[in-house]
């Protein structure tokens, strides 16, 4: 259970090939973020995903859910059968995050929902005097949604210092780059202007991710926290990186083999 990012990517590929699914590149940009969170930070008392005192991981960007399933496989929260039969008739794991799946906290995919629910959970934890933290991964494309900005305002106003928002900033959304579709400008400055304690990092450097999360969690300010994580859509596979086709493209036997081979060489 070391959440090796090569193995996580292999699990994603295996699922995506088995289910002939899309959104592979969306999952690959947040693999390192997920790995570091599950490996070093998310607290599950006795390893239970349903413990009332657990930390909450909100995958507001539900399109990256295969990265989370890959972590669940490591944790043995899902079995190999679920991976091999992804998207088969009558199977449970869906193509977007779904709170009916054990371990998933919010139903997302319709974007701009998860962060608000996470903000509510952070408020709930704070009201209870609990030490639980809320980690919310949002996409930069998702930040087109007005509700994201409503949630940011609310979090800062109610001083939800137990909330850490991580922006998976891969610079793409469904129809093109975020700059082409709806410019976000300087996200770090925007988040700071919204009164978040903000860091900007390389979202694929596990050591940096880890260090930054620790630093923010140990900060004594009343502010909610944010990390702008610069990531690469499709990270890890040469022909997927920054190639937005892999938002939608399905693996063939050839591309599947080629992708696995690339990961093996890196190993």
């Amino acid at each position: 259970m070391n959440f090796n990012v090569i193995n996580l990517r292999k699990t994603v590929l295996k699922m995506a090939f088995a289910g002939s699914t899309v959104h592979i590149a969306c999952a690959f940009s947040l693999i390192e973020i997920m790995a570091v969170l599950y490996r070093n930070h998310l607290h599950f008392p006795e390893g239970r995903f349903d413990d009332p005192n657990r930390d909450y991981l909100i995958l507001s960007k539900g399109h990256g859910v295969m990265a989370q399933y890959a972590c669940f496989r490591e944790l043995n929260w899902i079995d190999e059968n679920a991976i091999e039969n992804y998207f088969s008739n009558g199977s449970k794991l869906k193509g977007l995050s779904d709170a009916h799946i054990s371990g998933i906290e919010v139903t997302s995919g319709s974007l701009g929902h998860g962060l608000s629910v996470g903000v509510g959970m952070a408020l709930g934890a704070k009201l209870k005097g609990s030490k639980q933290r809320v980690f919310a991964i949002i996409g930069d494309g998702e930040m087109n949604e007005g509700s994201i900005w409503e949630a940011l305002l609310f979090a800062a106003h109610f001083e939800l210092s137990n909330l850490l928002v991580i922006v998976d900033k891969n610079n793409f959304q469904a129809m093109g780059t975020t700059d082409e579709v709806l410019k976000l400008g300087n996200l770090k400055k925007k988040l700071e202007a919204f009164d978040f304690e903000t860091r900007e990092i390389d979202g694929h450097d596990e050591a940096i991710i880890d260090k930054t999360i620790l630093e923010l969690l140990n900060s004594n300010t009343k502010k909610p926290k944010a990390i702008v994580a610069h990531t690469i859509k499709g990270k890890g596979i040469s022909f997927m990186e920054n190639n937005n086709c892999w938002h939608y493209t399905r693996l063939t036997s050839e591309t599947y083999k080629q992708a696995l081979k690339e990961l093996d060489i890196k190993n």
């Binding site: 629910v117 903000v119 509510g120 959970m121 408020l123 709930g124 509700s147 949630a151």
Partner: peptide, 8 residues
């Protein structure tokens, strides 16, 4: 959304 989080 916040109400959902609070209920949870």
């Amino acid at each position: 959304g916040v109400s959902a989080g609070l209920a949870k």
